[in-house]
């Protein structure tokens, strides 16, 4: 694979075109604006640049998927949205991300407040070594919500929303680590939505799951998009095609192509995208 397949400046045309045929029933009107705007984002790990001139906008109540070869910077970009990038000491960011018009990198931003609005589900399920109940209630407890009734209600609601309630309702006090991998993944999704964020970032949520659990998570994404804005990273082309409204293809730290999922998959503008989608790329 050589650089020749790549356009000279892939960042040029990555601003999402005006919505054409809405891919799915979504609330129209003013709600349907750009929730997140990434403006010329560059990121370095030490001297190595991991993101270059990323420009993107993410629509509210839509599912956007990031695809691209391993190491192209999908996770890195995702972790900028909730500023988990802060945790890497040698990481340096130039550029900006706006959430509802407000910069997330501004010094006055309360990071924990931001992370409550931008929930994240990680590549590998990481439930806490606590009971299922406490796992889901965790985000509420750190907000100082300790009222049993509120917690009970929220836990049930979040577990139902994550399609896990029926499987665990009789064993809420068991450790979250006793669940199967697929259940754990849904548990951490429930944990993330329990704090009612605006955005949910899903980093390869199905990479460790069997087909049935994968299906469940995909159904879940379909349900959640009614209330949340979802960004999902995946290596599975079919999955991206199935669940997402928009797709961004990333390559070596750049967003090469970004558009309607249908368009990206059936009629990619860039050669690199086509190669990757058709499997001619590793």
């Amino acid at each position: 694979m050589s650089e020749a397949h790549l356009p000279e400046d892939p960042s040029g045309d990555t601003e999402l075109p005006e919505e054409t045929a809405a891919p799915s029933p979504a609330p129209e009107s003013s709600r349907n604006e750009h929730l997140i705007r990434v403006r010329d984002l560059n990121l370095w790990y030490g001297n190595q640049q991991a993101l270059e001139h990323v420009d993107l906008s993410i629509r509210r109540h839509r599912v956007t998927s990031f695809i691209g070869p391993s190491g192209c910077g999908k996770t890195t970009l995702l972790r900028c949205f909730n500023r988990l990038s802060d945790l890497v000491p040698e990481c340096r960011v130039v550029g900006d991300i706006e959430l509802e018009g407000e910069s997330v990198f501004a010094p006055e931003v309360d990071v924990s407040q931001l992370r409550r609005q931008v929930g994240m589900v990680f590549q590998k399920p990481n439930p806490f070594p606590k009971s299922i109940y406490e796992n889901v209630a965790y985000g509420l407890r750190v907000q100082g919500i300790n009222k049993r009734r509120t917690l009970d209600d929220t836990v049930e609601w979040a577990l139902r929303a994550a399609a896990l309630w029926d499987e665990v309702k009789d064993r809420l006090e068991d450790s979250g680590l006793t669940l199967s991998g697929g259940q754990q993944q849904r548990l951490v999704i429930a944990r993330a939505i329990a704090v009612q964020p605006k955005v949910i970032l899903l980093d390869e949520p199905c990479s460790a799951l069997d087909p049935i659990s994968t299906l469940k998570v995909e159904e879940l994404i379909q349900q959640l998009r009614e209330q949340y804005t979802i960004i999902v990273v995946t290596h599975n082309m079919q999955q991206a095609a199935r669940v997402s409204d928009y797709t961004a293809f990333m390559y070596m730290g750049r967003v090469v192509e970004y558009g309607d999922t249908d368009q990206v998959f059936t009629n990619p503008r860039e050669k690199a995208t086509e190669d990757y989608i058709t499997g001619r790329y590793g």
Binding site: S112, F128, A192
Partner: peptide, 22 residues
């Protein structure tokens, strides 16, 4: 594991809360 710290931080817990609770 780092994943657990990040899991806690990603839920809006501060470093202190993460330390104390997890």
């Amino acid at each position: 594991p780092r994943a657990l710290r990040e899991g806690s931080l990603a839920l809006g817990a501060t470093r202190w809360e993460t330390l104390w609770r997890t």
